[in-house]
């Protein structure tokens, strides 16, 4: 198990390195000059050159990439901006703020949004999937199928906007979405995120209902489920301890990917509800050719996916003893 984990973590680091390099070099393929943006509308060549130097983009690409990489582990000194301690992700081209601090500042918004929604869609999706599988072909199953089809087809900016209009502005049952740190005001934190959670969960639940239903239907027909019933196990025990156990693997696979993706930035959700999370930060970084911020968000998104994958792989072994040995 330890060897398996070490191998996975080393592999993950290689993947992150490759993604960083690709992002970095792709950035310079964009026909936009961050120095010109920093320099303003009227920009004499000397000022432009100076801006280039200040941003550190006058050096060869390889040198830039290596110093960026080194900064993460040992920190880095910037001429005009002073020392940036490790893990240093550089200073924003736009507002000169240390990128690492900005990320730490924005993370709680995205994490709170993701975890809250994930708890709802995982529990609700798996539960409706189980019920649909047990009521195969009955009205409840059909309702679940139709609603998951609808849920899978609608877009968050559409549902989110409608929900805002009705529930916030018209009948005013929800608070205007807003992030308040949980340490400041737990109830405000909850109220401010409730609508985004529900809307995000609505979209994702559909997928979980579908996957859980189909794998449960399959697993309920497994021989060992029949054996469990033949030896007198109660209906609930058969469903939860035997059939669901086998159905969990695909659910966890998808859940890991979804969670990783959302932590990497729920761009559309954050934009729809005006939450200042990682997703919004990433979009702004692209808009302003803010390389250090962009690199950080890409690294974070990739890191989230990679970490979730390692966790999912380890969970496989917990769920299925056959995986442990091989």
């Amino acid at each position: 198990m330890l060897r398996f984990l070490t191998r996975r973590v080393l592999g993950a680091l290689v993947i992150l390195l490759i993604i960083s390099a690709v992002t970095f070099f792709l950035f310079y393929a964009i026909p936009a000059d961050p120095a010109r943006l920093a320099c303003g509308k009227v920009c004499p060549p000397e000022t432009l050159e100076q801006a280039r130097h200040n941003l550190g983009i006058d050096q060869p690409l390889m040198v830039q990439f290596v110093s960026w990489l080194a900064g993460i582990f040992v920190g880095r000194d910037y001429g005009g901006l002073g020392h940036c301690p490790a893990p240093c992700l550089g200073f924003s081209f736009v507002n000169r703020a240390p990128v690492f601090e900005t990320i730490i500042d924005r993370m709680p918004v995205t994490i709170a949004l993701t975890i809250g929604a994930a708890v709802i869609f995982l529990i609700f999706g798996v539960a409706t999937g189980i019920v649909a599988a047990l009521r195969q072909g009955k009205p409840l199953d059909k309702i679940a199928s139709v609603s998951s089809l609808i849920g899978a087809s609608v877009q968050i900016y559409f549902v989110g906007t409608l929900a805002m209009y009705f529930f916030v502005y018209q009948i005013q049952v929800f608070r205007q979405p807003k992030y308040i740190p949980i340490t400041e005001d737990p109830l405000g934190w909850f109220n401010g995120l409730l609508l985004p959670w529900l809307v995000l969960a609505l979209i994702f639940t559909a997928n979980y209902t579908r996957i859980t239903r189909s794998t449960m239907v399959e697993n309920l027909n497994e021989d060992y489920v029949r054996t469990a019933r033949a030896k007198g196990m109660s209906g609930r025990s058969v469903v939860l301890r035997f059939a669901l156990r086998g159905a969990l693997t695909p659910v966890i696979t998808i859940f890991g990917v979804d969670l990783g993706t959302l932590i990497g930035g729920a761009i559309i959700t954050e934009t729809t509800f005006g939450l200042q999370g990682i997703g919004r930060l990433a979009v702004r970084a692209v808009d302003y050719s803010d390389l250090p911020t962009l690199m950080a968000t890409v690294l974070l998104a990739a890191g989230a996916i990679v970490v979730m994958n390692v966790i999912v792989d380890s969970l496989y072994a917990v769920i299925d003893p056959r995986v442990r040995l091989s």
Partner: peptide, 12 residues
């Protein structure tokens, strides 16, 4: 007792 003991016993 069933025909195929591999699939009839729970792998978990």
């Amino acid at each position: 007792i069933f025909q195929d003991p591999l699939t009839s016993l729970s792998p978990f």
